[in-house]
């Protein structure tokens, strides 16, 4: 299936036509990348300056005059040494990992069924699923919390996994459907001739072939869950036993936001893991998974 194309890398340099084409591509790419990272660089630099310096001069002045500012790691030590940080980090992991994998699993099954199986109401159901993307989260919280109380699910990890799953499913199904439905038809035909059921076809063909789509959705869902504050506060609470990282960080800045410089360091601390997930999963965005099969 995963026929590698040896020519791939060799052709890599083949961007644009000729030297000028290649150069202009590179310049554009660098330009956009620079534009996009400027604000973040500002945040990074600010996170290692003292609060007075942050407010006293623009962050870019430190690049021109690196010795005129007080560099300090105090913002980071303040954030990392705060009480309950380790617990909060572990809780975030406990919440995020199942809340990423469960929706992907369910969505992959559903997307496959919508794309390749026949059952009554398929088109309507699919339209409804996608339409649910637009339901605002805030409107859903109160009825769900009422139901959770009845079921005794408030404050449990199961409750928050399922909540994140429910909220993430429409996007997951939509994105995965978009990918899975475009897999070549002949793949399935030959598999079924070989006696595969839909279940085995799903496990052995579709899942491996959909790795790029699965990986990209995993990235987004993980990010979303990891950075979520509202759902966690409502369904999980802030009791230090279960409080997650964002809730803990949010408290650090004080009731009136007086320690807002800690936000700079806090933002980077929370960013590290999602960034790692992105880098790790990025290698699944590979060409050639479908090599040899022309699209149907």
């Amino acid at each position: 299936m995963t026929a590698t194309t040896p020519m791939e890398r060799a052709r890599g340099a083949n961007v644009g036509s000729g030297f000028w084409g290649r150069t202009s591509v590179r310049v554009t790419v660098v330009l956009i990348a620079a534009l996009w990272s400027f604000p973040t660089v500002g945040l990074l630099i600010s996170s290692i300056r003292s609060p007075n310096d942050i407010r006293g001069s623009g962050w870019w002045t430190t690049i021109l005059h690196p010795f005129e500012t007080t560099w300090t790691l105090a913002n980071y030590t303040d954030v990392l040494s705060a009480n309950g940080m380790f617990n909060a980090f572990m809780n975030s992991l406990i919440v995020s990992i199942p809340a990423t994998i469960i929706p992907i699993t369910l969505a992959a099954f559903a997307a496959y069924a919508f794309a390749w199986m026949r059952f009554p109401g398929r088109g309507v159901l699919f339209a409804v699923v996608v339409g649910l993307l637009v339901v605002p989260l805030q409107m859903a919280l109160v009825p769900l919390l009422q139901a959770y109380n009845g079921l005794g699910m408030t404050g449990t990890f199961l409750g928050i996994w399922l909540a994140h799953t429910g909220f993430g499913l429409p996007l997951a199904i939509y994105l995965l459907y978009n990918y899975i439905s475009q897999l070549p038809k002949d793949l399935f035909e030959s598999a079924f001739i070989d006696g595969a059921t839909h279940f085995t076809a799903f496990l052995r063909l579709v899942l491996p072939l959909s790795v790029p789509a699965l990986a990209s959705f995993a990235i987004f869902q993980f990010l979303w869950v990891w950075n979520d504050l509202l759902v966690a506060l409502v369904f999980l609470g802030t009791d230090s036993e279960v409080a997650i990282l964002t809730a803990r960080l949010n408290e650090l800045v004080g009731s009136r936001g007086e320690d807002w410089h800690l936000l700079t360091a806090g933002a980077f601390v929370t960013m590290l893991l999602p960034l790692g997930v992105f880098l790790a999963l990025q290698r699944f965005f590979v060409r050639g998974l479908l090599a040899g099969s022309v699209k149907g």
Binding site: L141, V142, L145, L230, V234, N250, E251
Partner: peptide
């Protein structure tokens, strides 16, 4: 005691949600 900074949202949601 639970202190939260997103207080307004959480309190009203929990009150309406019966929690």
């Amino acid at each position: 005691y639970e202190g939260i900074t997103d207080y307004e949202t959480v309190l009203t949601t929990r009150v309406d949600g019966g929690n």
